[in-house]
Structures are given as structure tokens and as C-alpha cells.
Design a protein around this nucleic acid. Structure first.
Lengths: 253, 253
DNA sequence: ACCTGAACACCGTTCAAGT
DNA sequence: ACCTGAACACCGTTCAAGT
């Protein structure tokens, strides 16, 4: 009971004090020793854990408040005593996710530290497609992931970038990683939803013979497109992007 | 295309519909001249146009089949005679969007052609946030946008990249652009939804004083983060990315 | 304080008819 | 062939009570 309380408090504390205070009060007693109202049957931690399981197993589209209520053996209304709304629930599920992957060993050369950290961000999130979907809703980063931002900023500055250039470099790296993950999340989602033969039609599949004149490169590429598109090019792309970002900083300084 | 036109006009006129002649067309008569069933009151084009207006004015979350049916003066079921499902409707709305922006003049140097085309993609889509949202659902590109892919591939190859390196380069550029657009779409969506004071909290806003030791760069950056993040850095980021991509190709060849 | 059942205002999609 | 009204199986969220 007490361990669950601290777990809930930790979870809530990741984003604010109000939730933690409520959890600490719940099931407790007044100064008189009399229990204060009905004791809780549900715990925030149980709700969040079940929500995370649904997200992991079936993705963000499968998580509804009604479904979640059923799985924790309660009613939709009861959930709203523990989370303000679905948005807050998603934030709570996100909190602490970064800690699920061990922090990698980093090389000493700062340029390589940028690269290895960026690739680590990508590799961790690639295995957690639901996290990418939730981030796509516009939610902030888990605080446990902040060391990665710090590392990229610090290494970029040690490579000669001005602080604000380093911020821009971090953001460019993040947009590239996010774009890759979001693209693959979207295409695999569509592929799994495909009921009939209308599978996903990537760029060159909509070409007709008369396009050969105006789109010769795309036409001649043919099957190579699918082959290249199905392989992961993020290591190569990150190297190119980081080289470009650091070179532009070095040229100025 | 004459007898059935009057029939349709009569039908629609009896219902008090204005502009009935415009709607009388497609499903008309056989070679026999016999009308084949009830003439259509709805046209696919009208449905798609109204859907596009809703998307432009209020974004993808505002488009529902029921709302759309109301706005075209019909019922939800009737829409399904003209589109297979909501997915097909979104595809139809997307088709032809690329033609809405004039094709820019391109410089002659291939490296600059890659850059100008990439920036054009970004600038066009930045003004059409709903398109980004629909693309995020995993839909394919409008065929009218294919010249941009062709241009980037062709110029990259003329810069010395192998065809499959050029594909990878195009994809890296697209992921970066898409990441930037999706990020800004998500944050502005959240900002407009913000009911209470809980506005969007970007990365450094969750720092506490005791984080100064482990996250010194982020701590010292402070307000610079918001300043840099609110400015558009895509031109700079594209230059860096393209430099890196083309240099890596040149190094090999 | 916490929970329940019912309701409100929505979704996408389909059934069974009507014209 | 095209349309309508009603229905099915869902949503997130809230009201009015019960314990």
C-alpha cells in the first residue's frame, strides 16, 4: 500500500505537485484518525500502467477512456477522479519512458557524441511506435530524456557552435529523426489496416507510361525506390546532417 | 445529356434546390434514352470541395462525415454513394493540391536547384497545415507534386550522387521538412486548444534549480531556447543537410 | 472521497426501405 | 441509381445520485 503510494507520487511528481498531493491524501486519515470518505479502489498508477499496456500492444488508436475503464474493472466516470482528462493521462504514460532504455556509452570525440546520441534517440523510439504517436499529438518530452538534448547541445558547442547554433542543430536533428519515425509509423499503420488489395502506394507506383517524358529519373528508378525506401538510412542521413551542421558552424567561427 | 437534365432539374426544383442545372449530369440515360433510376442530387466534386473548405478553415479534426453531410444539405448515408469511405475522401481532397502553388523559377546550378525545390516544398506546405495533417495519416503524395521529387533526384544525380544515393538524399530532405511541419502543426494545434494556463511547455520549461548540475547547457540557455525555437530555421537546416548529403556522395565518387 | 448508471453530444458506417 | 431515417457500435466527458 505504501509502496504503491510512493510510486504514484513519483509518477505524478514528474509533472506537478497537485496530483502527488491528492494521491498522498487518498486512503489516508484526518487528524482525528477518522477515514475521510470512501477509500479508493482505483489507483492512478494502475490506470497509467494499464493505459501503457494498451498503447504498447495496440497503439494510440486503441486507447479509449471507456476501454481503459473496462480493463481496470471500473467505469469511465471513475477515471476522471484520477486524471483530469485523456490528455493528462497520455502525459502520465509518457513520463519515465526514457528510463526504459539504458544510457549508452559515448565516445570521447564530441562530433561522435552528437552522432551516437542522435542515433540512440532514433533507435529507442523506433521500438516504441506508440510514443511517437503520442509525441505527434504535441506533447512534451519526458524529462528523463533531457540528458540527450543536453549531450547534443554540449557536444555541438564543443565542436565550435555558438549556443544558439547548437539549439538549431539539435532541432534539425530532432526534426529529421521525428520525420523518419512518423513516416514509418504512418505507413506501417496503413499497411496493417489494409483490408483489400489497396496496399500503400509509394511515390513511383502512381507513374503511367506517358510520365516517362516529364519524370525520367523517377521512371528509370523503378524498383530501386522500394528497395532503398525499405532499408533504414538514418545512420547515413544523420552523418550527413551532422557534418553539414557542424561545418556551417566551423565556417563562421 | 438533355432529357435527363430537365428531369433532374424538376426533381431538384420540387425540393426547392437552387442551382439544380449544375447538379444535373453524370448518371443520365442509356442509349435507349430511358432514365436509369433516380437522378443524382449530389456530386462528388461538391462533396470534395466542401470537405476541402472545412479542412482549410478548421483542420482535419473538424471534418466528419456527418458534419460534411449537413453542409452539403444531405445525409451521412448519401455520401457513401460517392466515396467509398472517409479515407478515399481525404485522398480525393489531396489530389491536385500541388497545382495550387505556382512552380518556382529554378537556378541552373544543380545544388541550388535541390535547395530551392526543397524550400519550395516546405513553404507551400507551411501554408496548408491541413495537408500536413492528412499526409501524417500516411496518404501518398499528390501526383502534381511529383515534379519536385524528380527535380531533387535529377539535380542530386547531376551533383555526382548514384541514383540510390539520390533517393536516400530525397528521403532525408523530406523527413526533415515533414518533421519541421509536423512539429509546428502539433504545437500550434495544442496552443489553440489550450483552455487554461497550461500552455505548451517546451523543453527547458520543465527544468528545476537542482537540474543545473546535470543539465548545465540547457539551464544556461534559458530564454534563448524559446527565441531560437520560434524562428524558422529551415533554410539554414536545409543548406546544412544538402551540403552534408552531397559531400558524402562526392567523397565516394 | 470515491464510485455508479445514465445521459449529452458526438463519431464512421450500414440496414432496410422509399422513389 | 440515388436517397432517407433509423440503427449499430463506438467516442470523451459530465450530471445526479449513492455509499
Amino acid at each position: 500500500m505504501s509502496t504503491e503510494e510512493t510510486a504514484a507520487a513519483r509518477e505524478a511528481g514528474a509533472r506537478g505537485e497537485a496530483g502527488a498531493a491528492r494521491e498522498a491524501r487518498a486512503g489516508g486519515a484526518r487528524a482525528t484518525g477518522r477515514p475521510v470518505g470512501r477509500p479508493p479502489r482505483l489507483e492512478r498508477a494502475a490506470i497509467v500502467t494499464t493505459a501503457r499496456r494498451i498503447l504498447e500492444e495496440e497503439g494510440v488508436h486503441a486507447l479509449s477512456m471507456r476501454r481503459l475503464a473496462k480493463e481496470v474493472g471500473s467505469t469511465p466516470r471513475a477515471l476522471y477522479h484520477h486524471v483530469r482528462d485523456k490528455d493528462e493521462l497520455l502525459l502520465l504514460v509518457l513520463a519515465g519512458m526514457a528510463a526504459s532504455a539504458p544510457r549508452p556509452d559515448l565516445p570521447s570525440a564530441p562530433r561522435e557524441r552528437v552522432y551516437v546520441t542522435a542515433l540512440h534517440i532514433h533507435d529507442v523510439l523506433q521500438r516504441l511506435p506508440w510514443v511517437v504517436e503520442v509525441l505527434g499529438l504535441g506533447h512534451v518530452t519526458d524529462k528523463g530524456a533531457m540528458w540527450m538534448v543536453e549531450e547534443i547541445l554540449d557536444s555541438a558547442i564543443r565542436c565550435g557552435l555558438e549556443p544558439r547554433e547548437a539549439i538549431r542543430a539539435y532541432r534539425a536533428i530532432w526534426f529529421y529523426i521525428y520525420g523518419d519515425l512518423a513516416y514509418h509509423a504512418a505507413t506501417s499503420r496503413r499497411a496493417s489496416e489494409a483490408t483489400d488489395g489497396a496496399t500503400h502506394r509509394p511515390i513511383p507506383d502512381m507513374l503511367t507510361p506517358e510520365d516517362a517524358a516529364t519524370l525520367p529519373r523517377l521512371t528509370s528508378l523503378g524498383d530501386q525506390w522500394h528497395e532503398v525506401a525499405s532499408a533504414c538510412d538514418v545512420p547515413n542521413g544523420l552523418h550527413a546532417l551532422i557534418d553539414g551542421l557542424l561545418a556551417r558552424g566551423a565556417a563562421k567561427g
